[in-house]
Design a protein around this nucleic acid. Structure first.
Length: 256
DNA sequence: ATGGTAGTTCAACTA
């Protein structure tokens, strides 16, 4: 059995006890974190070691930052797409059990047509190339993280309100399905959909209380590995705690 | 038509 999860924690400093509690309860083999918002010298390595997790991380001050926590040995780490120099720390790749695990914090994009949106599209085209490379060079691949893309209207609380907006625009969605077409499955879709189950809710305007959410955090597995997936669920429990992240963790299980 | 909150950092930015 292999259990892997993703969680945008929106500051690991603030969310450390939430993450430690969640690890202790759910016992994933691997947890991918996004938006750690801390430099590597401040990463709380020992807190995770005490729970039996090795940590690798690529962080920066104030923004972004990704990490992988693992009970199993991690190998061949990469912290960027080859040939794409990005000062923003959004990528962390390692192999676990001969699976290439790619932890992603895809840019938000701010607003359709903005400079940040163009950066997102450029970044996504870099991801396309790297994902294809990984799929060719590794028997198994898992891409997971905060994709900042709601793939279809089913993933949006109010598709009319969100139509054409960032996270839902045609170009972003096309890029997501282009990635799927490279040979990946959205593990969430391998099981009956939990109605109106989202992974992110805006802190503003009581987004969570009103379930005004989007499903933008994903776990994708290569088609062969996907046949071994036995569950994939969004865990909203941590979103109900005091001082929660605006994202909920997503957890998938494989019988390998 | 554009606010609402949260985190980092301490005025303004990102989400």
């Amino acid at each position: 059995m292999f259990r892997i999860a993703t969680w945008n924690v929106n500051s690991l400093r603030v969310r450390l006890t939430h993450v430690l509690d969640w690890l202790a309860t759910n016992q994933p083999d691997v947890l991918a974190l996004q938006e750690t918002k801390m430099t590597d010298d401040l990463f709380p390595v020992q807190s995770f070691e005490q729970l039996g997790y090795q940590a690798i991380y690529s962080g920066q001050k104030t923004y972004n930052g990704v990490a992988l926590l693992s009970k199993l040995p991690l190998q061949s780490v990469a912290t960027s797409f080859p040939g794409y120099a990005d000062p923003q720390k959004r990528v962390l790749c390692a192999t676990v059990k001969k699976i290439a695990v790619l932890n992603l914090y895809i840019p938000n994009g701010s607003e359709v047509g903005s400079e940040k949106y163009q950066y997102k599209l450029d970044w996504l085209s870099q991801l396309q190339a790297y994902a294809r490379q990984l799929l060719q060079t590794h028997t198994h691949c898992i891409l997971l993280g905060d994709f900042n893309i709601a793939p279809t209207d089913e993933d949006v609380h109010d598709p009319v309100e969100w139509q054409g907006k960032v996270l839902c625009s045609e170009q972003e969605r096309a890029s997501f399905f282009n990635l799927i077409d490279a040979g990946l499955k959205d593990c969430y879709h391998l099981f009956p959909r939990q109605d109106n189950r989202f992974s992110w809710w805006d802190y503003r305007a009581a987004g969570f209380r009103r379930n005004r959410g989007l499903r933008i955090d994903h776990i994708l597995a290569d088609t062969a590995l996907a046949t071994h997936c036995t569950s994939c669920r969004i865990d909203v429990a941590p979103r109900k705690l005091e001082q929660p992240s605006d994202h909920a963790p997503v957890l998938a299980e494989f019988d390998i």
